[in-house]
Design a protein around this nucleic acid. Structure first.
Lengths: 295, 295
DNA sequence: AAATTATTAAAACAAATGGATCATTGTTTT
DNA sequence: AAAACAATGATCCATTTGTTTTAATAATTT
C-alpha cells in the first residue's frame, strides 16, 4: 500500500525542517492516512493533539492551497484502493501526454477493466457457473433485452444459435417481440438483460414469463433492480462509466462467459455444432481474408 | 467485499418499501458506499441527484438517529477494510473453491480485463481520439458490422442515434443492408467493425465506400486485417479469449469510448440531445423502476 | 541582555454542513 | 369528486467547518 505514495514521501522529506507542532501533526497524518479522509480537520487536530490551525499550516507547508487538498488526496487514495490497480494509475497519469480527450478515454477504459476484473471474485464466479448450469438444463431459452441491453441479448442469442437451436430472441418489429412467449412452457427459461433505466416492456415480459412458470435468470445492475426479486439466478454487473452513458461492456463479458460455459458443459456437441456452422458458412462464402477484387 | 454487511442487507430489504427519491438515494449509497464516508451529506446528495433532506430521511428510515450515524458506519467500514486488506490478498489464492467451470470463467474475465486495460496505452489512446475527431467532422456516419461484429455496430449506432441523426446503420433484411450507401457522398464516413473471420459482405461494402470517396474508419483485430489497408484510421483490439469464441468485449469498450468522446466534443448539444431523448421516452412511459402490477 | 524572528495558542470569521419546518405536489382512499 | 395521506422541494436555523487574524510565547541572533 505505502509504496509509491508521493505525498507521503514529501512529508517525510520535509519532516526535519518542520516545527515541533507541525511535526506532531505530520506524524499523525503519516500514521493514520485514512483518518484524514474520514474525519473533519478539527477532529483530526483533536486526534493529533494539535491546534486546528496547525493542520492548515501543514497543508501550506506541503505546497497545497488549503487543507481540503490534503483531504481530497487521501480520499482519492481510499477510492483507488477499491479498484485494485491503485499504484499503476498514478504512475500512468504522470507519463501520459494527456489531452483532455485521451484522459477521458483512459479513465473509461481503466474503469471498465476494473469492473470486469471485479467479476473474478468468488461470489460472482459462483453465480456465473450456477446460471450456466441452469441454462444448460433448460429445454429452451428465451432471450430478452431491449434498448441498450439489446446489445447483450443479441450477442447471447447469436452465439447460442451457433451452438444449437435452443435459443429464442424476444425481439421483433411492431411490438411483436413478446409473441414467442405464447407457447412458453415451464421447463423453459428466460434470460433477461436490463440495466437502469429499466424498460417497462422488459419488466412486463419477465413478469409474464415468471407467471407462466418459467425460471427467470437475469443480468442486471443492482440488488435492488426490479428483476432481482423475480429471478432464480441473478448476475450483477457494474454499469458506471466516466461518461454520459452507462457501460454495457461488463454485461457483454458476462454473456460471453455464459456462452463459453454452456459450450464447455457439453464440449463434444458444441464442437460439432460449431463445425456444422463453419461448413455451412464456408459453403456460402460468408467469410474471406482478403479484399474482394472488383469485377 | 460485499458479503456480510448488515447495513447493506437492511437497505436492500427495505428498498421496495421506500419512495422513489429514497430509492434513488439508497441506490447510490449501495453502489458507492465509500463515498458516504468520504464526502459531505450535501455533496453526496448532489452525486445521487437528490435533495439533501432526502439523505437525512434515508437515515431515519433505516432506523438511525441522523445522517451522521450512517456516515460513521461507513467510515468504520473503510477503516476495517484497511486492516484486513493485506491479509485478504494472501488468503484469496488459497480459499478459492475452484471448480473447472469457475476456473474458465476466471481466466476469461481476467484476460478480457487485461485486454481492455491494454487500450490505456498512449498509442491506442491516440488512435481513439484521432478517430473520434474524424467522426465528429463527418457529415454522416455509416455504421457497418455483420455477424458477431453486429453487436458493436449496433451499439454505436444506438448511442449515436440518441445523440443526433448523423448515424446510419447498414443493416437490413434480405440483403438490403448496403442500400443506404447508394446516396453516400465523400464528406461522409464509414465506421466498419470486423474481426476474423471477416465477413465478405463487410469487406465489399467497405471497399465500395472507399471507392465512393468516403473515409473508412475501422475497428478490427490486427494490423494485417484486410480493413487495415483501406482505412484512414484503425483501432486494433484484442479478441483472444480462453474459449471457443473470440471476445467482442474490448471492441464494445472501444465503441463506448468513441461515443463518449464524440459527445464530449460537443458537450452542450449532446446534453440537449440526451435531454430530448429523455423527455421523449418519459412521455412514452418507456422506463420504470418497479415491476408492473398485473391488471 | 536586548532585539528580532519564528512558533504557537486563542479568538474571530465567513462558508458550509446537518437538520427541521412548512408549503406544495402527487396518490390513494373514501 | 373530495378528502386524506404520503412524498417531495424549498427555506430557514443552529452548528460546525476551514481559514485568517491577532496576541502571546519561545527561540535565535546580535
Amino acid at each position: 500500500m505505502s509504496q509509491s505514495d508521493p505525498l507521503r514521501e514529501q512529508i517525510i522529506a520535509r519532516f526535519d525542517a518542520m516545527s515541533a507542532q507541525l511535526q506532531q501533526a505530520a506524524r499523525y497524518v503519516l500514521e493514520h492516512p485514512e483518518e484524514v479522509a474520514l474525519v473533519s480537520m478539527r477532529e483530526l487536530a483533536r486526534l493529533a493533539a494539535v491546534q486546528p490551525a496547525t493542520m492548515t499550516r501543514l497543508a501550506k507547508v506541503l505546497g497545497f492551497q488549503g487543507y481540503n487538498e490534503i483531504r481530497a488526496y487521501y480520499a482519492e487514495t481510499v477510492r483507488k484502493r477499491n479498484d485494485g490497480f491503485a499504484a499503476k494509475v498514478r504512475q500512468r497519469d504522470v507519463e501520459t501526454t494527456s489531452t483532455p480527450e485521451s484522459d477521458i478515454a483512459h479513465h473509461m477504459l481503466h474503469g471498465i477493466s476494473a469492473q470486469i476484473a471485479a467479476l473474478c471474485e468468488p461470489e460472482p464466479l459462483q453465480c456465473l457457473t450456477a446460471m450456466a448450469d441452469r441454462l444448460a438444463a433448460a429445454k429452451k431459452v428465451y432471450v430478452l433485452g431491449l434498448r441498450s441491453s439489446h446489445v447483450v441479448a443479441w450477442h447471447f442469442h447469436y452465439v447460442m444459435s451457433l451452438l444449437g437451436e435452443r435459443s429464442v430472441h424476444l425481439d421483433g418489429p411492431a411490438g411483436t417481440g413478446g409473441d414467442a412467449l405464447i407457447r412458453a412452457k415451464p421447463d423453459e427459461v428466460m434470460l433477461v438483460v436490463s440495466i437502469k433505466p429499466y424498460a417497462v416492456d422488459t419488466l412486463v415480459l419477465a413478469q409474464l414469463a415468471k407467471d407462466k412458470g418459467l425460471a427467470v435468470l437475469s443480468i442486471t445492475d443492482s440488488e435492488v433492480s426490479p428483476l432481482a426479486g423475480i429471478s432464480e439466478h441473478t448476475i450483477y454487473c457494474a454499469t458506471d462509466s466516466y461518461s454520459f452513458f452507462h457501460t454495457l461492456t461488463p454485461a457483454l463479458a458476462v454473456s460471453e462467459v455464459l456462452c463459453t460455459l454452456l459450450a464447455e458443459l457439453d464440449r463434444p456437441s458444441a464442437l460439432k455444432a460449431l463445425q456444422d456452422a463453419d461448413d455451412h458458412l464456408a459453403h456460402l462464402n460468408t467469410y474471406s481474408n482478403t479484399l474482394p477484387r472488383r469485377v
